[in-house]
Design a protein around this nucleic acid. Structure first.
Lengths: 335, 335
DNA sequence: ATTTTTTGCTTAAACGTTTAAGTATTAGTT
DNA sequence: AACTAATACTTAAACGTTTAAGCAAAAAAT
């Protein structure tokens, strides 16, 4: 596959030293006083030999790879897809390249990925932490610029970019209340992670405020057995003495899985039961029922994460913890 | 941020040579006859100092980075999101890491990304080629193991993994025919790229076969102005003397954009007009109308691309050109 | 005419690995 | 006892860069 051309090859062919070539290739001929004549000769030979700089050698020497490592929980989930796009775009603007990995909500996979990325000397990391390894991943922050996205760990010495999850689910309950629904339940993951717990807290507080007489109902499902658990949870909610009249789904995946089960049970959304979901996509506009969902400003969140990381990589010392506000979107059903 | 520990630090601390450390760290103490005693001492000091191997230095020495570069046209599109997931997963199984970039269907962005990835010494590339740079990117194949996905360029010395696009749109027309629709049109991009042209060809051939008396109607829209163009194209199709009774949308994005416009025009899918889309997602199951779409085996395609690339990187000389078959999915509307 | 400064270039070390080749030391053969 | 072979380890070069330091020649200053 065609031997690679190095700076040495150019130097030999042009009859100059490798230092001169390096200076010219980095566009610092002026400061390093390489004559225009020699500079041109070098540029010509470089073009002639079709020289491509070796970024690996450069990285080794400079101790910086201009690379950001990204670990998401599921790249096929459009929330993370959009975020990855935003992150790559913003990083690319600052001449950074993004290496990514998919943890699949699995801690050991996540840890391996982080190690792999670190051994590849990424200059910084953007990570969606997963259940089980909070304390481990936290220590990372001392070794390497790090920004958490989507989820976070309670610690003031950590950067994160998240949604104001409390406000989002509080708002969801309020919206349902305004539409006349009182017996609202929430369904989330069986997880200690803050983003889930905050969504539960928002729900509870809003219930206390708007429906103080109604018992709160928090259904939890395990990421490992979503379909099974959601079926049981929903069935229980619907079959209890005072069946719920509205449900808030706390994540993307749960929203779809929940709707799927409700359809199976022939429950008519909005008529029999009102639902609010988390993270919509353009296809939601064609649902047969009116549907409301919490929309996160994913793009801005991704950009912000890169911004914070770049600051940190440039030596900024303090930590940034940014909460974005959601938007509540009502899709109007196709009649 | 805590000085990095190198093999030299371990060697010094353990009072041995760097070679011994290297051998032990690579688990080849046996062949290189390092005594168990020394090996243990090295392992201990490595653990003590919390040594993390520097993959960059390793890559420089070995001339291989164990990294695959991935350039997709849009990572936020779930088709490419799923593909990226599959690629990362498969690569990771073979101890490869994936670096990715997003070309946004823009050739100059795509070229820049490919150059960046190459200067980062990726061992191979998986690329979704975009309009405008076919001949340029083709030459790449001589310099570096390369696999095209989703689209391809006609050239027998190139690897690719694509859908049998011809068969997919042929099948779409046939399905519509079987349901009694005769005046079928297709809407695709104004692009010379093979994947689009093949979809058009499948449509034309199927029309010739099933509806030889009906004039074919191929609407094209530009990626730069989808909304505007699709509005004009669809309006024209519906207002013409003999209005079409069914439309095949040739891509993911066009399907959604098309449906959006049809809704705006208050056209009832399936009643007024039958539609077949390309690439579904789980949300399609909740559409208010029966909806049929071409489903690509994305996951298998992604895995196959990695497989071919790894073979190529391992020195395999011949080229693989793989066409996958679609599946036609009927989503049953929510009543 | 001598010294100083500037210009234009080169030398060589370093980044952290891998690995072929070399060198003692010990063990085994004859 | 003298040689060979095996064992256990080290040395040093190399990968392709960057960059501080060095050096000679030309230009400027005295």
């Amino acid at each position: 596959m065609g031997k690679k051309v190095s700076i040495t090859d150019i130097a030999k062919k042009a009859g100059v030293s490798i230092a001169s070539v390096s200076y010219v290739m980095n566009g610092i001929e002026k400061e390093k006083r390489v004559s225009e004549e020699v500079a041109n000769k070098i540029r010509e030979t470089a073009a002639l030999l079709n020289y491509q700089p070796n970024h690996i050698a450069k990285s080794l020497k400079q101790g910086s790879t201009k690379t950001i490592g990204l670990v998401v929980a599921d790249i096929s989930n459009s929330f993370f897809g959009d975020m990855a796009k935003a992150i790559e775009e913003e990083a690319s603007k600052h001449a950074y390249t993004v290496i990514f990995g998919n943890s699949n909500e699995d801690f050991s996979k996540s840890r391996n990925l982080v190690n792999t990325l670190m051994s590849r000397q990424v200059d910084g990391l953007i990570v969606t932490p997963v259940q089980g390894g909070e304390s481990k991943i936290q220590k990372l922050s001392n070794k390497m610029p790090l920004v958490f996205v989507d989820r976070y760990i309670e610690n003031e010495s950590i950067n994160y970019v998240i949604l104001d999850n409390y406000a989002a689910s509080y708002d969801a309950v309020e919206q349902l209340y305004n539409k006349g629904f009182r017996k609202t339940a929430i369904v989330g993951y069986d997880s200690d992670m803050m983003h889930i717990q905050e969504r539960f807290r928002g729900y509870r507080e809003a219930m206390k405020r708007f429906n103080p007489d109604v018992e709160t109902l928090v259904g939890t499902v395990s990421y490992q057995s979503i379909e099974e658990d959601i079926a049981n949870t929903l069935d229980a909610m619907l079959q209890q003495e005072q069946a719920v009249d509205s449900i808030v789904f706390a994540t993307n995946t749960l929203t779809i899985a929940g709707l799927q089960h409700l359809r199976k049970r022939r429950i008519k959304i909005q008529e029999d039961l009102s639902v609010i979901g988390f993270d919509g996509n353009v296809a939601f506009d064609f649902f047969s029922f009116p549907f409301t969902y919490v929309k996160q400003p994913v793009y801005e969140m991704g950009k912000k994460a890169v911004e914070i990381l770049i600051n940190k990589m440039n030596g900024k010392n303090d930590f940034e913890q940014v909460k974005f506000k959601h938007e509540m979107v009502d899709s109007i059903p196709v009649k």
